[in-house]
Design a protein around this nucleic acid. Structure first.
Lengths: 223, 223, 223, 223
DNA sequence: CATGAATGAGGCTTCATTCAT
DNA sequence: GATGAATGAAGCCTCATTCAT
């Protein structure tokens, strides 16, 4: 379940009618705006090069206001990353690991996940930039946190592999843990690649094709 | 240790007795020491958290001395990364892409490369940290440069795949370019994984096994 | 005192009640305070010996505050010099070059200008110090700029001389350009002289007398 | 006799045959070379912008060597200025203040002095740059010293004026002290003017003409 | 609540000077 | 004597953060 360190807990209550509630709603909206602006700024200039003033500027608010919503620069980074992670997760966690019973089914499932994932990469390259670049290098603690997140993604992926092994349509001796990490590596590489691709949409297709081929059949020629 | 594998040996003539030569040699040694110290400091604290003073302190030299050998902080980063890249390359570029004629031969070759590569990852995790973490996130320009480097690694890897396709022991329709990038992703993921592994040496073996299995045979169960 | 003569009055509308206006006014006042402090510091220690911290200290403000109002050390120098130049100009440019028709009138005009000018020199020796010492030697570019300023002063002085030549009360063959520069030289020399004079006020009178005598009649004894 | 603060005392003994003497001679020569190089460097970049390394570089010597001949950067400045002052003095002190008995004779003398002086300005603008720019603004102490030097030059000039007053060919009520200072001002202005003149040689002539005309006859038209 | 003026810790970099070789 | 490697004081500047309005 990923790591919870940068998970936002946004508790909307269903009835939001009092003035205080409306204020809280507006505050929450403001927070979201700031996160959005920070997303853009961190992506464009990089976390360290970006300043609080840049974020405030982006929104046309005073930079003092920023501190009414976030404790400090690190805090907003955490929230931005939580947002990015959530977007990533919402795509990857869509399917049910135990829903497939045959290679064909699983393959279809993988293709679907990849399709959605790589679409995200093409449409929101900021997510890639944040998750695979800024989060990784912000500082040692951030690096550790990010590696934990990657491991979390791998754990999620592993569930699919284990399902396949248990149901017998994947190799019985598959090292599900390491293999899952390797697959995450492929995904990261795809994300980074699309970041600078001239025609990301076209590349996306190739990655889906090539990725699933290797994943399922390997590279070797059928004898 | 660190300073031998990757140091540019400019080919001094065997007679190295003049004062100028000795001075040049000592200067080169100093540069290497500083690079080594920066390696450590950047790895431990991260590029942005690290200061020139930290590097100088590590060596017990005045921080003014640093500037006799490197123009500025960015300069030393470039040199450190060049070193890291060279170490990585020297391991990956060891084999001859066109030397193999069968899957078995190629697989042996891959296993050997992985063996050497993952050994580097285990023994010099700093290289991993520098190449896959710090280089990526230092600043936008560095990010671009690093992605270029990754692409270069992929291009190198592609040569092996193309050889296999041409010789017929790899699938004819293999998308060598994307597949090579995917393999680089696996390598990156392995590096990052070993970075925080409890028992990196043990993990190394699993990665070699699992990695080559997926790569050659895919994950699917033989029907 | 200092801050009134030369301050650019941007013509605020009489109703200056909005917060924004008051803020702008305070900012302008702050800028003026900093310029004033810099005036003092540069005069006392010299431009190169003075530090931003000295200026901030002089005002009892944090040195970071300085940078909210001026881009850098060079910037404040430019502003200080602009102020000094403006004060100098406002004294010299007071009279109308074409207003005089006889030697006597012109001489009275010159005496008045000198009176005002040398009064400035006595009362605000900082202006002299800044314009004739610091500005000249700050750096090669500043030197060129300052020499240009001197030339501008000479150009202004030349207008008076040309008026006299045209009206016939000054020598027809007067080299107005060079003579004007020579007169500026006399003024500079006076300023520098008063800078270290024991009794500047007394010296001032002598300069006015001796200066105008030489200027109009030369040094030679009437035969 | 100027002020002695930056006067070099170079005591050549007539017999210079022993090894020690030859060494001393070579040392003296080295000192002169360094002064010459510093002259150039200070002139080109300005005192503060110039570094000891620049001077050493100019000569192709190690910058440590510099300190074997001069105590510090300020020391070399003093020597350079002494050199410049000497050159200036040697031109101005050429004539005998008491040698003239008529206006015509004195005027000829002045023209000769100006001729030599302004020739120096044209041929060695570095002297001007050093004496009238760098010396003035190096630091407060230097400024004071330089103003003293100017006063010394004025004192020297005053001797000529006093001679004229005593002999009756200059106005009896001439304020010789201030007038002398004014004349120095004209000379300074001339020097600075020639520094940036497009055709210094041509300007030189105009300065001599215009300068002596004003000095002797004033600017007023003969009635 | 919003603001932005004020702050100062912190970091980079320069360069005059020293001193061992 | 000559050298230049080493040094660290000194100074500029940035920017995250605070807080009075």
């Amino acid at each position: 379940m990923l790591n919870t360190a940068w998970r936002r807990r946004v508790g909307y209550s269903e009835a939001m009618t009092t003035a205080a509630d409306r204020a809280a709603e507006r505050a929450e909206q403001r927070r979201a705006e700031i996160v959005h602006a920070a997303f853009k700024v961190f992506t464009e200039r990089g976390y360290h090069q970006a300043g609080i003033a840049d974020i405030a500027n982006e929104l046309g608010i005073g930079h003092g206001t920023f501190y009414r919503y976030f404790a400090n620069k690190r805090d907003i980074l955490m929230h931005v990353l939580a947002d990015a992670a959530e977007r990533l997760m919402s795509v990857m966690a869509f399917a049910d690991p135990r829903a497939t019973d045959t290679v064909a089914e699983y393959r279809a499932q993988v293709e679907q996940i990849c399709d959605r994932l790589f679409t995200l990469f093409v449409e929101d390259p900021e997510v890639v930039r944040l998750m695979f670049v800024e989060a990784l290098g912000a500082d040692p603690e951030m690096t550790a946190l990010t590696l934990d997140t990657y491991r979390g993604l791998a754990k999620g992926t592993e569930l699919y592999l284990r399902n396949g092994v248990e149901k017998g349509f994947l190799r019985a001796d598959l090292d599900t843990e390491v293999t899952a990490q390797a697959l995450i590596g492929v995904i990261i590489s795809c994300g980074l690649s699309l970041l600078t691709a001239k025609d990301p949409a076209a590349q996306r297709e190739r990655w889906i094709q090539a990725g699933t081929r290797v994943m399922f059949e390997g590279i070797r020629s059928p004898e």
